[in-house]
Protein backbone atom coordinates (compact mmCIF):
# COMPACT_ATOMS: atom_id res chain seq x y z
CA UNK A 1 0.00 0.00 0.00
CA UNK A 2 2.71 2.44 1.06
CA UNK A 3 4.85 1.34 -1.85
CA UNK A 4 2.09 1.92 -4.36
CA UNK A 5 1.13 5.27 -2.82
CA UNK A 6 4.73 6.39 -2.73
CA UNK A 7 5.39 5.46 -6.34
CA UNK A 8 2.19 7.09 -7.52
CA UNK A 9 2.75 10.26 -5.53
CA UNK A 10 6.38 10.54 -6.58
CA UNK A 11 5.58 9.88 -10.20
CA UNK A 12 2.79 12.41 -10.22
CA UNK A 13 4.97 15.07 -8.62
CA UNK A 14 7.83 14.51 -11.04
CA UNK A 15 5.56 14.49 -14.07
CA UNK A 16 3.84 17.67 -12.99
CA UNK A 17 7.22 19.22 -12.25
CA UNK A 18 8.44 18.67 -15.77
CA UNK A 19 5.19 19.72 -17.41
CA UNK A 20 4.57 22.82 -15.37
CA UNK A 21 8.20 23.88 -15.33
CA UNK A 22 8.30 23.67 -19.11
CA UNK A 23 5.20 25.81 -19.25
CA UNK A 24 6.61 28.28 -16.75
CA UNK A 25 9.86 28.69 -18.62
CA UNK A 26 8.09 29.19 -21.93
CA UNK A 27 5.87 31.87 -20.49
CA UNK A 28 8.58 33.37 -18.34
CA UNK A 29 8.27 37.08 -17.87
CA UNK A 30 11.23 39.20 -18.86
CA UNK A 31 13.47 40.35 -16.10
CA UNK A 32 11.89 43.77 -15.85
CA UNK A 33 8.74 42.10 -14.57
CA UNK A 34 10.61 39.84 -12.20
CA UNK A 35 9.47 40.91 -8.76
CA UNK A 36 9.59 44.39 -10.15
CA UNK A 37 7.07 45.91 -12.41
CA UNK A 38 4.52 43.79 -10.62
CA UNK A 39 1.52 45.28 -8.97
CA UNK A 40 2.47 45.07 -5.32
CA UNK A 41 1.16 46.43 -2.06
CA UNK A 42 3.83 48.13 0.01
CA UNK A 43 1.56 48.51 2.99
CA UNK A 44 0.70 44.83 2.98
CA UNK A 45 4.37 44.05 2.47
CA UNK A 46 5.42 46.06 5.51
CA UNK A 47 2.93 44.30 7.69
CA UNK A 48 3.68 40.85 6.27
CA UNK A 49 7.38 41.44 6.82
CA UNK A 50 6.78 42.10 10.50
CA UNK A 51 4.17 39.36 10.82
CA UNK A 52 5.77 36.46 9.02
CA UNK A 53 9.52 37.03 9.13
CA UNK A 54 9.23 37.64 12.86
CA UNK A 55 7.59 34.27 13.38
CA UNK A 56 10.92 32.46 13.52
CA UNK A 57 13.68 35.02 13.94
CA UNK A 58 14.37 38.64 14.84
CA UNK A 59 13.71 41.22 12.17
CA UNK A 60 16.76 42.57 10.44
CA UNK A 61 16.89 46.16 9.37
CA UNK A 62 16.02 46.61 5.68
CA UNK A 63 19.32 48.42 5.29
CA UNK A 64 21.29 45.25 6.11
CA UNK A 65 21.01 43.96 2.54
CA UNK A 66 20.86 45.43 -0.93
CA UNK A 67 18.01 45.12 -3.40
CA UNK A 68 19.24 41.97 -5.13
CA UNK A 69 20.06 40.31 -1.83
CA UNK A 70 16.58 40.98 -0.46
CA UNK A 71 15.06 39.71 -3.68
CA UNK A 72 16.88 36.39 -3.41
CA UNK A 73 16.60 36.15 0.36
CA UNK A 74 12.84 36.62 0.41
CA UNK A 75 12.50 34.09 -2.42
CA UNK A 76 14.42 31.66 -0.21
CA UNK A 77 12.09 32.40 2.70
CA UNK A 78 9.05 32.02 0.48
CA UNK A 79 9.95 28.35 0.15
CA UNK A 80 11.02 27.84 3.73
CA UNK A 81 7.99 29.49 5.32
CA UNK A 82 5.50 28.34 2.65
CA UNK A 83 4.51 31.92 1.89
CA UNK A 84 2.19 32.62 -1.05
CA UNK A 85 4.06 34.21 -3.94
CA UNK A 86 2.04 37.43 -3.93
CA UNK A 87 2.72 37.93 -0.24
CA UNK A 88 6.44 37.34 -0.79
CA UNK A 89 6.41 39.90 -3.61
CA UNK A 90 4.84 42.49 -1.33
CA UNK A 91 7.51 41.84 1.29
CA UNK A 92 10.22 42.12 -1.35
CA UNK A 93 8.83 45.38 -2.63
CA UNK A 94 8.66 46.86 0.85
CA UNK A 95 12.24 45.88 1.66
CA UNK A 96 13.63 46.89 -1.72
CA UNK A 97 11.83 50.21 -1.62
CA UNK A 98 13.29 50.76 1.82
CA UNK A 99 16.75 50.10 0.43
CA UNK A 100 16.11 52.55 -2.40
CA UNK A 101 15.09 55.13 0.13
CA UNK A 102 18.30 54.60 1.98
CA UNK A 103 20.70 54.43 -0.93
CA UNK A 104 19.42 56.84 -3.52
CA UNK A 105 16.60 58.91 -2.18
CA UNK A 106 17.63 59.68 1.32
CA UNK A 107 19.88 62.54 0.37
CA UNK A 108 19.89 64.45 3.61
CA UNK A 109 18.96 68.06 3.62
CA UNK A 110 22.01 69.79 4.93
CA UNK A 111 22.06 72.84 7.02
CA UNK A 112 23.09 75.85 5.06
CA UNK A 113 23.52 79.47 5.84
CA UNK A 114 19.76 79.66 5.64
CA UNK A 115 19.55 77.98 9.04
CA UNK A 116 16.85 75.40 9.79
CA UNK A 117 17.27 72.38 7.52
CA UNK A 118 13.53 72.17 6.99
CA UNK A 119 12.79 75.87 6.79
CA UNK A 120 11.79 75.50 3.15
CA UNK A 121 8.88 73.20 4.05
CA UNK A 122 5.43 74.65 4.34
CA UNK A 123 3.53 74.20 7.60
CA UNK A 124 2.10 70.71 7.76
CA UNK A 125 -1.51 70.18 6.75
CA UNK A 126 -3.05 67.80 9.29
CA UNK A 127 -5.87 66.72 6.99
CA UNK A 128 -3.42 65.89 4.22
CA UNK A 129 -1.31 64.15 6.85
CA UNK A 130 -4.27 62.05 7.94
CA UNK A 131 -4.71 60.90 4.35
CA UNK A 132 -1.04 60.01 3.94
CA UNK A 133 -0.91 58.32 7.33
CA UNK A 134 -3.83 56.08 6.43
CA UNK A 135 -2.09 55.03 3.21
CA UNK A 136 1.33 54.08 4.54
CA UNK A 137 2.04 54.58 8.24
CA UNK A 138 -1.10 52.81 9.41
CA UNK A 139 0.39 49.43 8.45
CA UNK A 140 2.74 49.43 11.42
CA UNK A 141 1.59 52.29 13.64
CA UNK A 142 -2.09 51.37 13.56
CA UNK A 143 -5.14 53.50 13.03
CA UNK A 144 -4.76 55.22 16.39
CA UNK A 145 -0.96 55.59 16.41
CA UNK A 146 -0.59 53.18 19.28
CA UNK A 147 1.05 50.44 17.19
CA UNK A 148 -0.58 47.83 14.98
CA UNK A 149 1.31 45.02 16.66
CA UNK A 150 3.66 44.35 19.54
CA UNK A 151 7.05 45.97 19.28
CA UNK A 152 5.89 49.11 17.49
CA UNK A 153 6.19 52.07 19.84
CA UNK A 154 3.07 53.87 20.99
CA UNK A 155 3.21 57.35 19.46
CA UNK A 156 0.29 58.56 21.50
CA UNK A 157 2.09 58.66 24.81
CA UNK A 158 2.12 62.22 26.09
CA UNK A 159 5.76 63.24 26.63
CA UNK A 160 6.75 60.21 24.57
CA UNK A 161 8.40 60.07 21.16
CA UNK A 162 6.39 63.00 19.81
CA UNK A 163 7.72 65.31 22.49
CA UNK A 164 10.89 65.72 20.42
CA UNK A 165 11.31 68.83 18.23
CA UNK A 166 9.93 68.76 14.69
CA UNK A 167 13.39 68.86 13.16
CA UNK A 168 14.49 65.70 14.95
CA UNK A 169 11.26 63.89 14.21
CA UNK A 170 11.39 64.83 10.55
CA UNK A 171 14.98 63.67 10.33
CA UNK A 172 13.96 60.34 11.88
CA UNK A 173 11.04 59.98 9.50
CA UNK A 174 13.20 60.83 6.49
CA UNK A 175 16.23 58.74 7.35
CA UNK A 176 14.63 55.91 9.33
CA UNK A 177 14.81 55.31 13.02
CA UNK A 178 15.31 52.49 15.51
CA UNK A 179 13.22 53.10 18.61
CA UNK A 180 14.68 51.89 21.86
CA UNK A 181 13.03 48.63 22.76
CA UNK A 182 11.60 47.99 19.32
CA UNK A 183 12.65 44.78 17.55
CA UNK A 184 12.34 46.46 14.15
CA UNK A 185 13.53 49.72 12.69
CA UNK A 186 11.29 52.12 10.85
CA UNK A 187 12.68 52.29 7.32
CA UNK A 188 13.36 55.68 5.69
CA UNK A 189 10.09 57.42 4.82
CA UNK A 190 8.21 54.54 6.36
CA UNK A 191 9.38 52.35 3.51
CA UNK A 192 7.59 54.50 0.96
CA UNK A 193 10.09 56.61 -0.99
CA UNK A 194 7.24 58.35 -2.76
CA UNK A 195 6.65 60.36 0.39
CA UNK A 196 8.39 63.72 0.14
CA UNK A 197 9.72 65.75 3.00
CA UNK A 198 6.62 67.91 2.73
CA UNK A 199 4.42 64.82 2.93
CA UNK A 200 6.16 63.79 6.12
CA UNK A 201 5.65 67.27 7.49
CA UNK A 202 1.94 66.82 6.83
CA UNK A 203 1.99 63.45 8.62
CA UNK A 204 3.79 64.99 11.58
CA UNK A 205 1.19 67.74 11.76
CA UNK A 206 -1.53 65.09 11.82
CA UNK A 207 0.18 63.19 14.62
CA UNK A 208 0.57 66.40 16.60
CA UNK A 209 -3.15 67.05 16.35
CA UNK A 210 -3.88 63.49 17.40
CA UNK A 211 -1.83 63.70 20.55
CA UNK A 212 -3.22 67.15 21.31
CA UNK A 213 -6.72 65.75 21.04
CA UNK A 214 -5.72 62.91 23.29
CA UNK A 215 -4.35 65.35 25.84
CA UNK A 216 -7.50 67.40 25.56
CA UNK A 217 -9.63 64.33 26.12
CA UNK A 218 -7.72 63.49 29.23
CA UNK A 219 -8.03 67.00 30.58
CA UNK A 220 -11.77 66.93 30.04
CA UNK A 221 -11.99 63.67 31.94
Amino acid sequence: MIKMFGILAGGALLASTVAIAQSAVQSAPDSSASALGKDVDLTRGAKAWADHCGRCHNLRSPSELGENAWDVSVTHMRTRASLPGDLADDIKAFLMYSVQSKTADAAPIEKTAAGDAYAHLKPGDAERGRELYSQTCVACHGANGEGAFEGVPNLMIVSGLLSKPDEILLANMINGFQSAGSPMAMPPRGGNPDLTDQDLAHVLAFLRTQIEEKTGDRRQK
Partner: peptide
Protein backbone atom coordinates in the same frame (compact mmCIF):
# COMPACT_ATOMS: atom_id res chain seq x y z
CA UNK B 1 -5.31 51.59 -1.85
CA UNK B 2 -1.68 50.94 -1.17
CA UNK B 3 -0.95 49.20 -4.46
CA UNK B 4 1.86 50.48 -6.64
CA UNK B 5 3.96 49.27 -9.49
CA UNK B 6 7.36 48.57 -8.09
CA UNK B 7 10.29 49.41 -10.32
CA UNK B 8 13.76 48.12 -9.69
CA UNK B 9 16.24 50.87 -9.09
CA UNK B 10 19.41 48.99 -9.84
CA UNK B 11 18.27 47.33 -12.98
CA UNK B 12 18.16 43.59 -12.77
CA UNK B 13 19.91 40.68 -14.27
CA UNK B 14 18.08 37.46 -14.94
CA UNK B 15 20.29 35.61 -12.49
CA UNK B 16 20.83 36.93 -9.01
Amino acid sequence: SGRRVYQRLSGGSDTK
